[in-house]
């Protein structure tokens, strides 16, 4: 019995098929598990282990290395505020403090209504709009307390659902189709191109 919903399960199997080795699908599969459950649930981890031919402990150990994976439930909106160098010079630390007061939760924790999780992030590579803020990994480009207040109000009123997909959803565009170049074709192609290149090198002498 699959823990993944049928549609997620199908996408997971397609992902595994894109790589020469199943384990390579680990990071995309963990994103997918997070898309369904909002975090990496024990059942989701078990299923990723089965799909990648690894163990649950191995999956958990791998996931724990990466900041974007949550091993515990998080809020509907994960708000990340950068305080790294460019944002620091633009008041990122003060902005993070403001966000903490506004949301009513400490950095690294979730509001009691389960709506917001606040994180201090490292550089998010959007330094010309500092301080940089992401919600569910979408740049929201709010740099002042006033615009942050408006953002929070809009999120509470579910006005930004089109711009900010639900937490855990990393990418809404699906790959169309699997690998297209047949294995045998590739083997033949490579043999032909090596032989042709060797011949050209020989002729050049």
């Amino acid at each position: 019995m699959s823990h993944f919903h049928p549609e997620i399960r199908q996408r997971a199997e397609e992902l595994v098929g894109l790589y020469p080795r199943a384990r390579s699908a680990m990071l995309p599969l963990l994103h997918l598990a997070q898309e369904q459950d909002g975090y990496l649930s024990p059942e989701g981890i078990d299923e990723v282990a089965a799909l990648t031919g690894t163990t649950s402990a191995d999956v958990r150990g791998t996931a724990a290395f990466y900041d974007m994976f949550h091993l515990e439930p998080v809020g509907k909106y994960v708000v990340g505020v950068c305080t790294n160098i460019a944002c620091l010079l633009a008041g990122g630390e003060e902005f993070l403090e403001y966000a903490s007061r506004k949301l009513g939760c400490a950095v690294g924790s979730t509001t009691s209504d389960g709506l917001f999780t606040l994180e201090e992030t490292e550089c998010l590579a959007d330094c010309d709009k500092a301080p940089c803020v992401q919600v569910n990994h979408r740049y929201v480009r709010t740099t002042t307390p006033a615009t942050f207040d408006a953002l929070v109000d809009d999120l509470r009123a579910s006005k930004l659902d089109a711009d900010v997909p639900s937490h855990g959803t990393l990418i809404r565009v699906r790959r169309s189709g699997g690998l297209r170049a047949p294995r045998q074709e590739i083997v033949d192609q490579r043999a032909r191109s090596s032989a042709a290149r060797a011949q050209r090198a020989e002729e050049a002498k």
Binding site: L18, L27, L30, F65, D67, M68, R175, A181, I186, R192
Partner: peptide, 21 residues
């Protein structure tokens, strides 16, 4: 994909998401 623009060269390209590291 297979036989790009009618040539005998084929290529598959996969987009791989990182996860914050």
């Amino acid at each position: 994909g297979s036989r790009i623009f009618g040539s005998d060269f084929s290529l598959d390209l996969v987009v791989h998401p990182g996860a914050g590291a």
